[in-house]
């Protein structure tokens, strides 16, 4: 049962490893710079097929030509991670093969000769087992995989004519706040009721030796912190050892910015707040009582 894995950006290890459980050949289709293809090849898939976009050409420009290649090879399983460009390639390939496309896949297996897909539902509260009944395309949403020790794959160059998509302009997103390499980040949201109360959260950040950050509305709508300090889909994407969210409900757009955090902790007065579904640790309580108590507790550590 052969699998093709579409890769356009870093963060591919889990998607590449998942189809190993099926026992067939794993072919990585890389659309991106040479360093990306070399990194994938070093992880030891059976083959790497590499498309190098010319400067100014986005990976999506190859979605339709690649779909023709996939249709000719007809692999049983197609895999991509969450990266938008990789999903664009997967969508075209799945349509070409007319196979089901299942999101949220956390595992693939063969049971009694039949393909099975395990996928996370309801925010990861349950794992569903699906029987696609033939080939399938999946969007992998499981854990990253540890580095494999397999022979390095050779890289075969795929020469394809691309669709006329072009990158017209690129500009860096402001990241001068020091959040990107902070070991600890304390962040707050609309649970903080007034601008002068930001000092309460700042005191917690100081006690933790953390950078102070916020959710998008705090910077964008209220202007209580500079826009360079908000975390989320359109703001900072950070990977601290500790991300402590104070009075933040946990909208998916916000959580997308802290996917790389090792430990997510949260303080919220609503026990059903979405942030607790993604947090490792939490306190249910009024932040105006809990935060000073935390500062006092952390101060004890220094004495």
């Amino acid at each position: 049962m052969d699998s093709w894995v579409f890769i356009t950006a870093d963060g591919w290890s889990g998607a590449l490893e998942a189809p190993r459980a099926l026992g067939g050949r794993v072919v990585a289709v890389v659309v991106g710079p040479r360093e990306l293809a070399e990194g994938v090849a070093a992880a030891g898939p059976d083959e790497v097929r590499w498309v190098e976009p010319k400067p100014g050409v986005p990976p999506e420009a190859f979605s339709l030509p690649l779909a023709d290649v996939v249709a000719a090879a007809a692999p049983a399983v197609l895999v991509a991670g969450a990266d938008p460009a990789a999903r664009a390639l997967l969508g075209a390939a799945a349509a070409a093969l007319e196979v089901p496309l299942l999101p949220g896949a956390v595992g693939l297996a063969v049971e009694d000769g039949h393909l099975r897909v395990r996928r996370a539902l309801a925010g990861g509260q349950t794992i569903e087992t699906c029987a696609p009944g033939g080939g399938v395309a999946v969007i992998y949403a499981g854990e990253d995989a540890p580095a494999a020790t397999r022979p390095e794959a050779t890289i075969e160059v795929l020469g394809l004519t691309c669709s006329p998509l072009a990158i017209g302009a690129s500009e860096p997103v402001g990241q001068a706040s020091g959040l990107s390499d902070a070991e600890r980040v304390v962040s707050f949201g609309r649970g903080v009721r007034a601008r002068e109360d930001v000092a309460i959260v700042q005191a917690l950040a100081d006690a933790c030796g953390a950078e102070l950050a916020c959710s998008m509305p705090i910077a964008d709508d209220l202007g209580w912190l500079d826009k360079s300090r908000y975390v989320g889909r359109s703001g900072n994407h950070i990977a601290p050892a500790l991300y402590l969210a104070v009075g933040i409900a946990g909208a998916p757009q916000h959580l997308e910015g802290v996917r790389g955090a090792r430990i997510v902790a949260a303080i919220n007065n609503d026990p059903d707040a979405r942030i607790f579904q993604s947090a490792d640790y939490g306190i249910v309580g009024d932040l105006y009582e809990v935060v000073p108590a935390l500062v006092a507790e952390i101060d004890k550590l220094d004495k």
Binding site: P100, L102, R116, V117, A120, L121, G124, Q125, T126, I127, E128, T129, C130, A131, P132, G133, V136, P271, F276, Q277, A279, D280, Y281, G282, I283, V284, G285, D286, E289, V290, A293, L294, A296, E297
Partner: peptide, 27 residues
């Protein structure tokens, strides 16, 4: 649509959430 064979709870531990007295929760 694809056939569903069933669901089970994930094996990952849920968040450890403390509640009650603020000082005790903080500790």
């Amino acid at each position: 649509d694809v056939q569903t064979l069933g669901c089970r709870r994930p094996e990952t531990a849920p968040a450890r959430v403390f509640a009650g007295d603020p000082a005790q929760s903080a500790a």
